[in-house]
Design a protein around this nucleic acid. Structure first.
Lengths: 347, 347
DNA sequence: GGCTACACTGACACCGTTGTCACCCGGTCC
DNA sequence: GGACCGGGTGACAACGGTGTCAGTGTAGCC
């Protein structure tokens, strides 16, 4: 006890050796126990566990990483977003899974033009065990190839093209877009504007495809002038809407590729003195917080983002641990959420 | 060349030994060069640098952490937020600095009741070199004490109380609140409602204090019934507004503690059939994206969040590297942003 | 009873850095 | 000319785990 009185500044974390001594076994056995390896007698395991408890032992991740050549950390690649809530939810989902499995999460916000080299540098610097990739950066073949070449496991969220060589998770954007348009058709709209999303996102074209299918199913002709470009952000939605308003024969309803653009449409309508929803129905996509902050609140499609993200992380960890060796594509259903921004035309 | 043809699956990262051999020096010298230590002859340094370039050497963080007892990573503690854009901007700021200095960023989203124990576990699990703490969790004495006790450097963002024992960074909430109210007084408003923010946030009371000071400076009496509680989220803003509308003598203007609540006020006004800004002026705080998505767009106060966050990270790294040994408190000026949600009463 | 198989355990090298300390060397000081 | 100094460098031992492999004990089998 005497020697303990000095230099006890930092409580000096217990090491695997301390645990081994305390439990009366070798360090290797302690290692086996904390890594849940087989072939440890139940009684031994218990003794070790108790020692771990008593000493409040936490394995040193650096040492683990060095010796075991894995870091127990994964990276999340995402693009600097307009849609804050989207990223936040992705983060939530991925983080939750990481925490549950004792993995650390390293962020990789990517700038506009994230050279694959940049990705590679991230890998060698951090030595993450795997990556979760979000669209649209996660789609780029140079990125995926760089990862594949280095045999770094990864999972894509909402990739544009579903490449069977890799595993991915995403919402059913097609069905969502279709449901939205069907909803408007059911209300009696005949001229429906559609604001496309950022063309780099696969989701943008999938949602449009759903829209077109809905029209086709009802035998409606497609008026190309009603389909206008957008970039998924508020400003582009506003501009696109003004463009549609100027049409000789403007639409009675507008489907925006996401909620932010829909919010832009609403503001554009106010600027143009158009009454909502009487003179114009507006629908978005995502069911982001924005959808409730507009007036009237937005009819939209909810995609289970958090769930999608956790699923992605879950699949990644399975792959890392070697519990799965075949690539899959998981699709999540979306749900139409009807609010007051849509109504029968003229109502 | 012949032996290279086999087993070149993984390119096998270069280690410090490879660099040493290539440069014709000892590994220790390489270590000195990459850590920018003094006492290396310029010529030697150059030779090593070239070898580093040629071999694309990146030091192994795990080995570095193990030997040097620091991880070159810092943690970011934040609370699961309603204000997505706020967190996102904090992240941006902190991340930018981390990247510039070769540090990794580990997230710690904290749940409702983040026991200090939880914080401690995070520290021992990750062994981060320091922490950036955001309000309101970062205020809790049990958290700060736990960090101080373990001698883990930290910097607070927007703490409630400015404790001179620690370093912190934040906006001048007081001045911001004051400017907002002065703006409304200048427009001719005499009855101004104020929706407080989440009481756990220091920013909430500072903004209110600014409001009260503005009133006091003009010799206006304070009507307690006009000051109502809120929680910084949309819903609480909406409810608070409805409460104010029901008053016998309702306000002609409302200052909300932040933009989300202000958006709630606007929706509440629409629900109540109140015309904006003619019958009611509304102001927010933060200049979040929401401020532009409402109609009319919000008068608000812009706080330089990204800058605040980078400053915090910068200060933290200085402290970690031992370049600073005195605690400071940095305050950033806010800027009033006037938009169309405020006007003279009745105008 | 002897042999094999297998469950369990430990000794020890090794992962790729940094910290410590000793050493070399040229210049300065008395 | 010897003692001293300090910049520049390298040898070597950590750091705290995991991988490999050999050893031990017990059960199952002929």
């Amino acid at each position: 006890m005497k020697e303990a009185t000095k230099g006890e500044r930092r409580p000096a974390r217990a090491t695997i050796r301390d645990v081994a001594r305390c439990a009366g076994v070798s360090i290797k056995t302690v290692s086996r126990v904390i890594n849940r390896e087989a072939n440890v007698r139940a009684a031994t395991r218990e003794r070790v566990m108790e020692a771990v408890q008593e000493l409040q032992y936490e394995p040193n991740p650096a040492a683990r990483g060095l010796a075991g050549r894995r870091t127990f950390s994964i990276g999340l690649l995402y693009e600097n977003p307009h849609e804050f809530s989207y990223v936040q939810q992705i983060l939530d989902g991925v983080f939750g899974v990481c925490q549950a499995h004792g993995y650390a999460l390293l962020l990789r916000p990517s700038s506009e033009e994230p050279a694959a080299d940049d990705m590679v540098r991230f890998l060698t610097q951090t030595r993450v065990d795997g990556m979760v990739l979000t669209a649209p950066v996660g789609d780029r073949p140079d990125i995926t190839d760089a990862l594949a070449e280095r045999q770094v496991p990864f999972v894509q969220i909402s990739p544009g093209i579903t490449d069977t060589r890799w595993t991915s998770v995403g919402p059913d954007d097609f069905a969502g877009g279709r449901a939205l348009t069907e909803h408007l058709l059911d209300l009696g709209h005949a001229r429906i504007g559609f604001i496309k999303g950022d063309p780099r996102h696969g989701a943008a074209s999938a949602r449009l495809a759903g829209h077109l299918r809905a029209l086709g199913d009802r035998g409606m002709a497609v008026d190309e002038s009603l389909i206008v470009p957008g970039l998924f952000d508020f400003e582009s939605g506003k501009e696109a809407a003004h463009g549609l308003f100027r049409l000789a024969h403007p639409p009675t309803a507008i489907v925006a590729g996401n909620d932010d653009m829909a919010a832009g449409v609403i503001v554009a309508a106010r600027e143009a003195g158009i009454d909502l929803p009487a003179d114009l129905s507006v629908a978005g996509f995502d069911d982001s917080p924005t959808a409730l902050h507009t007036w009237p609140p937005l009819t939209t499609v909810r995609q289970p983002i958090v769930e999608i993200a956790s699923q992605a992380a879950e699949l990644l960890l399975e792959w890392i641990r070697g519990e799965r060796d075949v690539h899959v594509r998981k699709t999540f259903d979306c749900r139409l959420v009807v609010r007051r921004s849509t109504s029968a035309p003229g109502a």
